Amino acid sequence: MRLTVFWERMADHFGAGCADTLARDHVMSELGGRTVHEALAAGWNAKDVWQVVCTVMSVPAEKR
């Protein structure tokens, strides 16, 4: 998954402002105690990060 697709999905589900806030501020143990931004900067694959976000934030299956 390209980063542009990842951020489009984040904005589509959470709204542009909330997606950035979530990605910047919400630490997820499933990402090794990192935020989305930190996980991506550490080299995590965007698809893997998206799957974690979907699980943690209960994103409906049709949006995954």
Results as ranks from 00 to 15, higher is better:
62 E>P: 08
31 L>M: 03
8 E>Y: 09
20 D>N: 14
15 G>H: 09
16 A>M: 10
51 Q>C: 06
20 D>L: 12
26 H>Y: 15
5 V>N: 07
37 H>N: 15
31 L>W: 00
6 F>V: 03
33 G>S: 05
64 R>W: 12
43 G>E: 02
16 A>V: 05
25 D>Q: 13
56 V>P: 03
10 M>C: 05
23 A>Q: 02
29 S>A: 15
38 E>D: 12
35 T>C: 03
35 T>E: 10
13 H>R: 14
13 H>M: 06
40 L>K: 02
3 L>H: 11
3 L>S: 05
63 K>A: 13
64 R>E: 12
2 R>M: 04
1 M>D: 11
47 K>P: 04
52 V>N: 09
38 E>V: 04
34 R>G: 10
63 K>I: 06
20 D>I: 12
61 A>C: 10
34 R>P: 08
1 M>F: 08
25 D>M: 08
49 V>K: 01
35 T>N: 07
43 G>P: 01
54 C>V: 08
53 V>L: 10
27 V>I: 03
40 L>C: 01
59 V>F: 03
19 A>C: 07
51 Q>L: 05
57 M>D: 11
25 D>T: 14
10 M>A: 09
13 H>Y: 15
6 F>E: 00
40 L>F: 02
31 L>K: 03
33 G>I: 01
45 N>S: 11
18 C>W: 13
38 E>M: 09
2 R>D: 13
34 R>D: 09
11 A>W: 01
36 V>A: 02
60 P>R: 09
